[in-house]
Amino acid sequence: MNIEQIVFYFFAASVLLSAFMVVFIKNMVRSIFLFFVTLFSMAGLFVFALADFIAVTQLIVYVGGMLVLMIFAFLLSSKTILNKSEVKESNLLGLHHIPGLFIALLFFLILFITIYQANPDQLSWVNNSENVIQVNDNTIHFIGVNLMTRYLIPFEIISVLLMMALIGASHLARREKKI
């Protein structure tokens, strides 16, 4: 077991553990901050798939932008939850959690069996493929060239959509007398 595998499985364990704790911890402020840990470790996993640019984008967009937005929304909206946080501590796993837990476990079983039978490491285009990204490749170069040639239309559409979404969000969040 070399150092690459050790670090990879450390990040994987950190992702899964913090995701479990996000879901099962009652205190919402703690779970939002643990969500931060999950996203950080997810960026680490992206680096191991040789997608360093995606990892940096994940850090900037999710951790920098989205999480601050979420904490603001939580602090603005959940005064009642903050006040009665001690009352709900008693029932750790209430009855209404059981159907969701059941469906999630069964869905994981389905996915596990599918992955086991698909056996993605033995696929022909994975095993003897010529254009695998090497560790010392400059992936940002390839991303930039493809973004301006092959994926130009999705890039333009997504930029217009992002602008629309941001204008719409700021319009919705504006304080008005009559909504």
Binding site: F53, M66, M70, F155
Partner: peptide, 23 residues
Amino acid sequence: QLFALFAIVLAAAAVAVSLAIIL
């Protein structure tokens, strides 16, 4: 990788709109 990038941007847009709706 490029579609991962597009998905991250879409997620950011979705979160902005839905947090405004939640408020």
